[in-house]
Amino acid sequence: MCGNNMSVPLLTEAETVSATEKETAAVIFLHGLGDSGHGWAECLRGIQLPHVKFICPHAPRIPVTLCRNMMPAWFDLMGLTPESPEDESGIKKAAENIKAIIEHEAKNGIPPHRIILGGFSQGGALSLYTALTCQHQLAGVVALSCWLPLHSSFPLGSSGSKNLPILQCHGEMDDMIPMQFGAMTAAKLKSIVNPHLITFNTYPGLSHCSCPQEMATVKEFVEKYLPRI
């Protein structure tokens, strides 16, 4: 099983964009540090497909070492370099919470192979880690402006299928999570899953945010891996 035995997801708070016809697929999208699911729900509404619902959970408020503050975060952050210490227990706990949402959707009729996991920044990082450690074969991952947490534990830590499509996007002018980290992540991912299923797109002039061109690429990815059935 992917996740724990709870019948209800641990993260019950989420902004949901319902499909306009019978829901046969879902995208679970995780926001970045200090944010909420509301903004991304609005953004994703702009690329919605009639049969796909979007679930944008809100992270709990926790102490974040990097910011010396309490804020919405999926796990603690000590630094933003590849050498920074990581909140291993927090990352694993957050991944279990997301896996519980996947199980909840499966019980309600949307199987894991019809679910794409995605996110931005810290949310993208968690989506990568969750998908790679999930026992289920997911439809794919959308990883925007992010990195792979606990990267040294892979590929041994991967329990997911090697045939996991991954769309990685990164702004070339990102001063928060430098594009170099994205490139290092893409290289690492190629040692974990089928390299032919990894797409790494970069966007000139784009900082630590999204853009219409990137969202159009996300929509194409969702259309390809969650086709109408």
Rank of each mutant, 00 (worst) to 15 (best):
E83N: 14
C209I: 04
H51R: 03
C43N: 08
G160W: 04
N4G: 15
T81Y: 12
S36E: 08
A186P: 01
H113M: 15
G160T: 12
L80T: 09
P63Y: 10
P9S: 14
G34Y: 01
K188R: 14
L206N: 01
H170V: 11
T65R: 07
Y129C: 08
K92S: 12
G39T: 08
A186W: 00
R228I: 15
L148G: 06
M70E: 10
T20H: 02
A19F: 04
N97K: 07
P165R: 10
A41T: 00
G119S: 12
Q213W: 10
C43F: 05
Y129I: 05
S159V: 09
I91K: 09
V222Y: 06
A216S: 15
T20Y: 06
L126W: 03
V218S: 13
H208R: 08
M176R: 08
S158F: 06
L30Q: 01
C211F: 08
P149C: 11
M78P: 00
K53F: 00
M179Y: 06
A125C: 13
A100M: 11
I115Y: 09
C169L: 13
K92V: 13
T202D: 10
P9E: 13
G3K: 05
A26D: 02
D76S: 10
E86G: 12
S89M: 13
L10H: 05
I47K: 07
P60A: 04
E172W: 10
V142H: 02
F221D: 10
C211D: 11
F154M: 08
Q213R: 15
A216P: 09
T81R: 13
S145P: 04
P178A: 14
A131G: 11
L44A: 06
T185P: 08
G3L: 06
E105W: 12
P195S: 06
S159G: 11
M1F: 13
I102A: 06
D76M: 04
I166H: 04
N69C: 07
I166C: 12
A73I: 00
E13I: 01
M70S: 09
L126Q: 03
G118I: 11
T24E: 12
P57Y: 01
P112R: 08
G119N: 08
G34S: 09
P82C: 14
F181T: 07
N5W: 09
L126N: 03
S191P: 01
P60K: 00
P50N: 11
G90R: 02
C209Q: 11
L132Q: 06
E13A: 07
L138S: 07
C209H: 05
P85V: 10
G171W: 04
E223N: 15
L77V: 13
P82M: 15
I91V: 15
L156R: 05
L144H: 00
L33E: 03
S121I: 04
I115V: 15
L164S: 07
L128T: 03
S121Q: 09
S127R: 02
T81N: 13
